[in-house]
Design a protein around this nucleic acid. Structure first.
Length: 209
DNA sequence: TTCAGGATGTACT
DNA sequence: GTACATCCTGAAC
């Protein structure tokens, strides 16, 4: 399990390193696991797109000042949540937004949470766009304001780069996958920060061969 | 395949 | 009152 030491690192380092890691959500019905494929860095010290830009403290941004490894989950557009993991030292308002993933375990439960029906009844488009957005990820993993400001923990939500830790036997060696770096999404209001190359995407294996 | 429009609640000014 | 780190649907191409 990745601990607060990992999240205490530089935010861009963490955002890059989280690609390919497994996000594990513990629920009464069972475990839901996905592999992280898309992240973005938010660094309050210098970043107009960050809710805590210039160390601004508000009721919402307060979570960003908490210790590394804290969950920052907030409501957006009235109906979706965005999952972030707090980085750097306590008091330094930074986080990594998780924007996309691939389902690994508990896919049936994720489908029920997303669409209210089983995987078999989902359309091809629904399956194709399963976890490719921050709102979708939170819906599939049943993450809401309930989890905001809590620490990552083995009984709630945690992250690892070792599949053995969540009960998967040795996976076949995965092919290397290329990382694409680009501008962040949906922050056109953020002036010069709009163009910061702080988005990291793990490209599909098929594009790497 | 792309695109416009609507759903929806709350933090912040 | 305004803006928002979004997503889905249905229409047009």
């Amino acid at each position: 399990m990745l601990t607060s030491d990992f999240f205490a690192q530089d935010t861009l380092t963490v955002a890059r390193a989280l690609l390919g890691c497994y996000l594990v959500r513990e629920r009464p019905e069972g475990r839901r696991v996905c592999r992280i494929t898309e992240t973005e860095a938010y660094i309050g010290r210098i970043d107009k797109a960050c809710h805590a830009y210039g160390y601004k403290r508000t009721k919402r941004s307060e979570t960003l000042f908490m210790p590394p490894g804290t969950i920052y989950n907030y409501l957006i557009y009235g109906m979706y949540y965005c999952l972030n993991l707090v980085t750097e030292a306590e008091g330094e308002p930074c986080a990594v937004l998780l924007r996309g993933a691939e389902a690994v375990l508990g896919e049936e439960d994720m489908a029920r949470a997303r669409f209210g029906k089983g995987l078999a009844e989902c359309s091809a488009n629904q399956r194709k766009n399963f976890l490719n957005g921050p709102g979708k990820l939170c819906r599939a993993l049943a993450l809401t304001r309930e989890e905001n400001a809590k620490a990552l923990s083995p009984s709630l939500l945690w992250v690892t780069n070792d599949p053995a830790e969540f009960g998967l036997p040795m996976l076949t060696t995965a092919p290397a996958r290329e990382v694409q770096i680009s501008k962040r999404i949906g922050i056109d209001y953020a002036e010069e920060a709009t163009d910061f190359p702080w988005r990291f995407v793990l490209l599909p294996a098929s594009l790497t061969e």
